[in-house]
Amino acid sequence: MIPTDLPFSQACENNKAPILAVLQQAFANCSTVLEVGSGTGQHAVHFAAALPHLRWQASDQALYLPGLTERLRRAALPNLPLPLQLDISADALPAQQFDALFSANTLHIMPWPVVEQFFSRLNELLSEQAMLCIYGPFNYDGRFTSASNRAFDQSLKSRDPAMGIRDIAAVTALASAAGFSLQQDHSMPANNRLLQFLRNGG
């Protein structure tokens, strides 16, 4: 039964199963995962429960921590510690390094300079041979993949002109500069993608 007194995202409920199917193989050899932008915590709880070999560290900005913390506290999973406060553009990074990072539906919310910061800080956050999985809508060659994504982009820009669906080529260029190569571009429901990167080491 879904608690009615906690923040809730229907999109998270809809996409958690197909995302998990990818993470089961992408994170098979990982042990510690940092989730950036955990939001309601629905993903964190679902993935930590299904991937008991992982220590799943959720994080988000201070604004979202109360509801996120309460969801994780109620879940009481041994591999799901309470979340960290992390604004990728401002906060000090965790002292620990992780061997995987997951983020869903964040790059189109971040202004582009913050997206650049996100990738530039990966070397501080992640160990050698780390896996990086990023979920969300993306464009190809500057083109929307669906009418719904075009409408979503317009909605984002009406809220803040700095928001918007990012182009995969621009994202993979930032990842490459940070030492990550694109391993797979997974097609996901509702015109989303899951980009799976591997750090090249060194």
Rank of each mutant, 00 (worst) to 15 (best):
H46C: 03
L107C: 06
R121F: 04
Q129R: 10
T32S: 11
L156C: 04
A58E: 08
I134V: 03
L68E: 03
L126G: 03
Y135T: 00
A50M: 04
Q184R: 15
F118L: 13
V45M: 05
G39L: 00
A190E: 08
L63D: 06
L86D: 00
A11I: 03
F8N: 07
M163L: 11
L63F: 11
V22Y: 00
D5T: 06
A75F: 05
A58Q: 10
L82N: 01
G41C: 03
R159C: 10
S158E: 15
Q10K: 13
E35K: 05
G37K: 02
L20V: 01
M131G: 12
T4N: 12
R55Y: 15
K157D: 11
M163S: 15
L174Y: 11
A92F: 04
F119Y: 07
Q154D: 15
L20A: 00
A95E: 13
L182A: 03
L126I: 04
H46D: 04
K16E: 02
L63Y: 14
P66Q: 05
A11G: 02
H46T: 02
N200K: 11
Y140P: 09
A175E: 15
H186I: 13
M131F: 12
M163C: 14
A58F: 04
Q129W: 14
P66H: 08
V114E: 10
T106S: 07
S31Y: 13
Q184D: 08
R199V: 11
Q96L: 05
G142S: 14
Q61R: 14
F8W: 13
L54M: 04
H53Q: 07
H43M: 00
F27G: 00
A50P: 04
A44I: 01
A44R: 06
H186M: 13
S31G: 11
F102S: 00
M163Y: 08
P189F: 09
R55C: 12
G202M: 12
L182F: 09
S103R: 06
R143Y: 15
H53D: 01
S187I: 10
G39D: 01
A92W: 01
A49S: 14
D141N: 13
S148K: 09
M1T: 02
A170E: 11
A104P: 13
R74Y: 12
L156G: 05
S31N: 12
S155C: 10
A190G: 01
P113N: 10
D60G: 04
I88L: 12
G39Y: 03
L156F: 08
N191D: 11
L156A: 09
L20K: 04
L68P: 08
P83V: 01
I2M: 08
P3Q: 10
A58P: 13
L86T: 01
M188Q: 02
R159I: 03
H108C: 09
R166S: 02
R159P: 07
I109Q: 07
M1W: 14
A26V: 01
L63E: 14
L54W: 05
S176K: 09
A50F: 02
F138I: 05
G37A: 02
M110G: 13
A58K: 09
L34F: 05
L6S: 09
V45I: 11
I109T: 03
